[in-house]
Design a protein around this nucleic acid. Structure first.
Length: 202
DNA sequence: ATAGGGTTATGA
DNA sequence: TCATAACCCTAT
C-alpha cells in the first residue's frame, strides 16, 4: 500500500542532520499513520498503560527509515550510493544500515535507533514487561537486527536519559531523537521502571 | 536468556 | 573534550 506512495526522492533529499530529524520523522509518521493496535495479544501480555497508537510506525519501514535517518554522522557520497542501491532490498526489510559503507566492513557501534524503534521498545516493554527481552524481540523486532541484548541495552539508555534530564538541566550531548522520546515518554518509562524495581524488591 | 559492568564511537 | 549512545563481555 503505502510503499508505492512513498516519495523516495523526498526521503533521500530530506534533512541531513539531526536538527531537523524531528520534523522530518513526524512528517513520515503522519504520512504512514499505521495502526497495529488490532494485533492479537498473547495471554501473557499485560497492558500497563494506554497508548496513543498513532505513535506507531509500520515495522516494515524501520529499516529504510533508519537507513536514511539513523546515522549520526554525515553520510559520504559513497555510503549514500551504497545505501541507495539497497533501497529495493531495504524497503520492507528490517536492516538499519550502519555507516561503515566502504570496503564491505561495517562499523559496529554505529547502528542508531530510530524514533520509531524507540517507540516500539517503549510499547513492547509496556506490554511484555521489563526483562522479557526475548518476548519483546519476538513481538516487536522479530525481523529487526536488534537482538534481545540490544533491547535491554537500549532500555537502560532510555531510562538513564530520562533520569538525567530530570536531575540536571544540561541536555547537551543528547541526540535529537532521544530528546524527543524522553520528552514524550519520560513519565511512562520512569513509571515502568519504578514498578519493575518495586516488584523486584518483593 | 538476562543483568550489569566495561568499552568504543559519536555529536555538540 | 566530554557526556551519551551503542555495543561488548561474562557471570549467573
Amino acid at each position: 500500500m503505502m510503499e508505492d506512495e512513498m516519495d523516495l526522492e523526498q526521503l533521500w533529499t530530506g534533512p541531513r542532520n539531526e536538527k531537523h530529524l524531528h520534523g522530518c520523522m513526524e512528517n513520515q509518521f503522519h504520512s504512514l499513520n499505521v495502526m497495529i493496535d488490532g494485533e492479537a495479544t498473547t495471554d501473557d501480555e499485560t497492558i500497563i498503560d494506554d497508548f496513543d497508537i498513532k505513535d506507531y510506525i509500520d515495522p516494515s519501514m524501520l529499516g529504510f527509515i533508519s537507513c536514511r535517518f539513523g546515522a549520526r554522522k554525515k553520510r559520504t557520497s559513497q555510503e549514500k550510493h551504497i545505501c541507495q542501491g539497497k533501497v529495493g532490498e531495504l524497503f520492507g526489510s528490517q536492516y538499519p544500515c550502519t555507516s561503515g559503507g566502504g570496503k564491505g566492513r561495517s562499523r559496529k557501534n554505529n547502528d542508531h535507533w530510530t524514533e520509531g524503534e524507540m517507540i516500539d521498545l517503549v510499547n513492547g516493554v509496556s506490554r511484555k514487561g521489563i526483562g522479557r527481552w526475548s518476548k519483546i524481540k519476538g513481538g516487536y523486532f522479530s525481523t529487526s537486527i536488534r537482538t534481545a541484548v540490544h533491547l535491554k541495552d537500549k532500555w537502560r539508555n532510555q531510562v538513564r536519559a530520562c533520569k538525567a534530564k530530570s536531575s540536571s538541566k544540561k541536555k547537551v550531548n543528547v541526540q535529537k531523537a532521544t530528546e524527543v522520546i524522553v520528552q514524550r515518554f519520560r513519565h511512562r518509562i520512569l513509571a515502568l521502571e519504578a514498578r519493575h524495581l518495586g516488584e523486584k524488591k518483593k
